[in-house]
Amino acid sequence: MASLLKPWLLVPVLAGLLSAGQIWVSHLRYELSLETQRLNTEKQDALGQASKLRLELANMTRPERLRQLAQQKLGMAPPKPEQVVNP
C-alpha cells in the first residue's frame, strides 16, 4: 500500500482538490447570485406594493370623499361653533 503513495502523486491530487474547490465556490457564487436576484426582485415588488398602497390610502382618505361619506352615509354635519373646543 505504501508503495502506491508516491510523492509525485501529490501534485495531481492537489490539483484535483483545488479544481473541485473552485467548482464548489463557483456554484456557491451562482446560488448566492440567484438568491440576491430573488431578494432584489422581492424588494422591488414590496416597494412597488408600498407605493400602490400609499396611493390607495391617499385616494380612500381624500377629504372630499370623507366629507361625502360623513354627510351622506353617516348623516353627520359640520360642527356648530360651541361644539368645537381647543384640544
Binding site: G48, S51, K52, R54, L55, L57, A58, T61
Partner: peptide
C-alpha cells in the same frame, strides 16, 4: 428610477409614481 412623491404639510400623499 421612480419620481419622488409630493406630500402635504401632514405627510399625506399628493402625488405618487406607480410602476
Amino acid at each position: 428610477a421612480p419620481r419622488g412623491s409630493i406630500l402635504d404639510s401632514k405627510n399625506r400623499t399628493l402625488a405618487e409614481s406607480v410602476e
